[in-house]
Every structure is written in C-alpha cells, then in structure tokens.
Design a protein around this nucleic acid. Structure first.
Length: 110
DNA sequence: CACCTGACATAAT
DNA sequence: AATTATGCCAGGT
C-alpha cells in the first residue's frame, strides 16, 4: 500500500511546488501541474498516491479546482477524505457544503 | 518500472 | 448546443 520507493525527479518537483504552499492555503492539481510543467493534473494525483510520505508531503493541501477535496491516498471517497477535510480545517481552511471557502494559493507570489 | 499523454465524464461558460 | 477546464484513471511509451 505504501512501498518505500525513492522519490523521483517528477515527485520532487511536485513536492517542491507543494512546499510553496503555506499553511492554511490550498492548491489545485492543474495549478500544480503547470508549475511542474505537466499538461495533466492527473499525473500529479498519481505522484501523490505513488509515494506520498503522508504527513511529510502536504498532499492534503491539494484540492480540486472546483473547491472539492478531490482524492486522498488513492481514494476519491471514504473516511480518508473526511480526515483530509478535518486536516484542512485544522490548518484554518474552512469548507461549506463540501466546497472550499476562499481561494487557491498563488504560485506567482512564491 | 516509472512517467506522461490521452480518453472520457462532468461542470461551467 | 458547443467549447473549455478539471481530474488521485487507465494505458502506452
């Protein structure tokens, strides 16, 4: 479920961009994908579920562009998603009716 | 085996 | 209706 594969260049790039997101802020897959120079946001999700050092990599700070949670640990539904929401709430991110309240982090500010 | 483009579904414009 | 944008899939390279 969580093989200890060494982080690849692609993942590292994603993690670095993810590190640019301060606490209490959120990003979308497409936004992150563009930062790493990828045309598919789905590749980002793949990178997350591949080798996400869960607490080390703030993959929970990656939401959909619609404001929905998206997926977590390879699941798009389940208690893991609820945990993700709770984790976001813990960081100060508020939700309403399953939607993110506020805006995404601007990489240009980084 | 790791990585990415593509196909497909859904929502907004 | 058509086009555009997003996506934690699936498959091909």
């Amino acid at each position: 479920m969580n093989p200890d594969r060494p982080p690849t260049a692609f993942e590292e790039k994603v993690y670095e961009a993810l590190s640019s997101v301060p606490r209490g802020r959120v990003t979308s897959y497409a936004l992150l994908a563009r930062q790493v120079g990828c045309g598919s946001a789905q590749a980002i999700g793949q990178a997350m579920k591949r080798n996400p050092r869960a607490p080390e990599v703030p993959c929970h700070r990656v939401l959909r562009a619609d404001g929905t949670l998206g997926g977590y640990s390879g699941q798009v539904e389940g208690e893991q998603l609820e945990k993700k929401r709770a984790l976001l709430e813990s960081e100060g991110v508020r939700f309403e009716d399953g939607r993110l309240v506020g805006k995404f982090w601007d990489f240009s500010t980084s």
